[in-house]
Computed example of a mutant assay.
Amino acid sequence: MKRYELTEAQWARIALLLPGKAGDPGRTGSDNRLFVNGCLWISRSGAHWCDLPERYTRWKTVHRRFSRWCHAGVWERVFDTLTADRDKQYLMIDSTIVRAHQQAATGKGGSKDQALGRSRGGLTAKIHMLADTLGRPLRFRITSGQASDVTAAPDLLECQKAEAVLADKAYDSNGLRGRIAAMKAEAVIPSKRNRKTFIPHDTAIYKHRNRIERCFSRLKHFRRFATRYDRRTAHFTGFVHIAAAMIWLP
């Protein structure tokens, strides 16, 4: 097994979740494992697709298939299946800003930029994440870098259940607190300084929030997560789900 590639145990967990198996509708993939390992190599190394080692076959073939899987939602479905065994006691929300590489900013402007925006860090995107009690990723939303943290929170919490929702003070809004109350969960969110009436929170439970920050640190070992090289949001989201799936594969 070479660097960045799946172990036998990891491959056994996802092999049946992938399209292109014998008996599946459509074209049968020649070697799903080789293809996934090639995508992992790109994700971890951050290299250009044209630098993909020849052992993974032609880079254009791998890139074309990766793109098809992104648009078909394959990477997200595999990730969602892996997260079924989640710890439901707490939910945590946070976000991180990633710089956009110059190759992500190519092409036409306007709506063609796809979730890219200007913030203090320059041209950036923002990854919003929902995590479970152990700090493992459950759901993602990608927005432009200048978007407010709290804007993606209701979507992340849709159809979720937990005893408490943990977030930092950037998420202190009456609307989000009402959304959490509707879930019959406790909002463990510090109050902002400008809040007229201070709302106390459980400081003991809040200490667990560092787990989602540590998860972001692990995810940023994947260079295609830590920096946005992809102009298309669908491709960038595909790499986000690949990195997140590896957190769930011991």
Rank of each mutant, 00 (worst) to 15 (best):
M1K: 11
L6R: 09
E8N: 10
E8L: 04
A9D: 13
W11N: 09
W11P: 06
I14Y: 07
L16G: 15
L18D: 11
P19C: 01
G20A: 02
G20F: 02
G29K: 08
D31M: 01
N37C: 11
N37G: 10
C39D: 07
W41G: 10
S45M: 05
W49K: 09
W49I: 11
C50D: 11
C50P: 00
C50F: 10
C50W: 08
L52W: 01
P53E: 01
E54T: 14
Y56K: 01
R58Y: 07
T61P: 07
H63T: 02
F66V: 13
S67W: 05
W69F: 06
W69P: 11
C70T: 07
H71N: 11
W75T: 06
F79H: 06
D80G: 04
T83R: 05
T83H: 01
A84G: 07
D85P: 02
R86K: 14
K88H: 14
M92T: 11
D94P: 07
D94H: 08
R99Q: 12
R99L: 09
A105K: 02
A105V: 02
T106D: 12
G109P: 12
K112M: 01
S119R: 00
R120Y: 10
G121T: 03
G122W: 01
T124V: 11
H128F: 08
G135C: 05
R136T: 06
I142R: 05
Q146S: 15
Q146F: 02
V150W: 03
V150E: 08
V150N: 14
L156F: 06
L156N: 11
Q160E: 15
E163L: 01
L166N: 07
A167K: 04
K169Q: 12
A170L: 13
Y171P: 10
L176K: 08
L176C: 08
A181N: 06
K184V: 00
A185D: 05
E186L: 05
A187S: 14
I189A: 03
K192Q: 14
R193N: 15
R195S: 10
T197H: 14
F198Q: 05
I205Y: 00
R209K: 07
N210C: 14
R214E: 10
R214Y: 04
R214M: 11
S217F: 00
S217I: 00
L219V: 05
D230L: 06
A234C: 04
H235L: 04
V240A: 14
H241R: 06
I242M: 08
I242D: 14
A243V: 07
A244Q: 10
A244K: 02
P250N: 13
